[in-house]
């Protein structure tokens, strides 16, 4: 018996627009910015608004400008290579996102050194920075392109939720109560800082 060929994704005219629409529908706030510098500013502003004192960030070059700015504002940056317990004290988690999926409005994060799962999982607010040219039309395209697989590749489609009690949807069952994406619409040059 030959292995049936799974159908691919349907045609999507404007993956970025569809991603934004559907991410909003599942409760991910989409903040579209023109440049990476702008994304940094918005991330810092969000922390300021929320009076964040402790933040967990991925330890990647992309996150360095945000980390430095937050530090300058007096925010404690928890050691991204520290223990789960340490990172559990964060009020915000800021990460990258390798991919976005238009059909489902999902963020796709891969784990790796300096990229703990804890950063997208433990704090009540999770912010991901996503380049618009990393948005794929659907899951089939994502799975074609996402290899070789890291130890954990996680698709995130909205805040943690449960409707187990009384059929009432509750956000933040175990993970973040709120998720936002800083969608960098222009070409990502990594030239800030």
């Amino acid at each position: 018996m030959n292995r049936p060929v799974p159908p691919g994704d349907g045609l999507v005219d404007d993956p970025v627009a569809l991603f934004s629409e559907r991410a909003e529908q599942v409760g991910i706030s989409v903040i579209t910015v023109g440049t990476y510098d702008e994304a940094v500013e918005r991330a810092v502003a969000l922390c300021r608004e929320r009076r964040v004192q402790r933040a967990a960030l991925w330890d990647t070059p992309e996150m360095a400008p945000i980390r430095d700015r937050l530090r300058a504002e007096g925010v404690e940056i928890l050691d991204p290579r520290g223990s789960f317990e340490t990172l559990a004290g964060a009020e915000i988690g800021i990460t990258g996102a390798e991919w976005g999926v238009a059909e489902t409005g999902s963020l796709v994060l891969s784990a790796g050194p300096g990229k703990p799962q804890a950063a997208s999982l433990l704090a009540p607010l999770h912010i991901a920075v996503l380049r618009s040219d990393r948005i794929v039309p659907g899951l089939a395209t994502l799975l074609e392109r996402c290899g070789p697989l890291p130890s954990a590749l996680v698709l995130i489609t909205g805040p943690s939720r449960s409707a187990d009690i009384g059929l009432v949807p509750v956000l933040g069952a175990h993970g973040p109560t709120a998720v936002a994406v800083l969608l960098v619409a222009g070409l990502f040059l990594g030239d800030s800082g």
């Binding site: 599942v26 991204p80 290579r81 520290g82 223990s83 789960f84 999902s106 784990a111 790796g112 050194p113 300096g114 703990p116 799962q117 804890a118 697989l149 890291p150 130890s151 954990a152 590749l153 996680v154 698709l155 995130i156 489609t157 909205g158 805040p159 943690s160 939720r161 993970g175």
Partner: peptide
Amino acid sequence: VYVSLLTGPRRAGETD
């Protein structure tokens, strides 16, 4: 909300 694709145990340099 969450789909986790887990490929093997923790790798070198990872903390969770």
